[in-house]
């Protein structure tokens, strides 16, 4: 197997980044930390679109358009999440996701 980065190497990279993000989403207690892990997931998904576009659909650039959409969605998500964190912190004085459980019966 050659070491020159091909499709498989690139996919390995984006998958590793995705699984690190997955771990973060499951273990982070601070809500801002969860948001950061979600950004990791979105970033590796955008990277996947570009990787497949580069290796499997070169003359077209639809994958790049999809990556742009993902970046836009990530921006919208970060804005709303920050507003929610500020509102939650104002009323509960914490952003620990394990403490925010008033809906629990």
């Amino acid at each position: 197997m050659s070491f020159v980065p091909g499709l498989f190497h690139w996919l390995c990279l984006s998958t590793i980044l995705f699984s690190i993000g997955l771990y973060g989403v499951m273990t982070r207690r601070n809500a801002v930390g969860v948001l950061m892990s979600v950004e990791l997931l979105l970033n590796s998904a955008a990277m996947n679109f570009l990787i497949f576009n580069h290796f499997a659909a070169k003359p077209f650039i639809d994958g790049a358009v999809m990556a742009l959409f993902i970046i836009a969605v990530a921006a919208a998500e970060a804005v709303v999440a920050m507003a929610l964190f500020v509102a939650i912190f104002r009323s509960r004085k914490t952003v620990d996701v394990t403490q925010i459980d008033t809906l629990k019966g």
């Binding site: 948001l35 790049a64 970060a78 964190f85």
Partner: peptide, 25 residues
């Protein structure tokens, strides 16, 4: 796309996240 990534993520999203950190901890 790399330019847009820098512009939106580093110039926007990371700064928003830093703001969220500053406001909540």
């Amino acid at each position: 796309i790399a330019g847009i990534q820098l512009l939106v993520y580093v110039g926007g999203i990371v700064i928003l996240i830093v703001f969220a950190v500053m406001l909540t901890s």
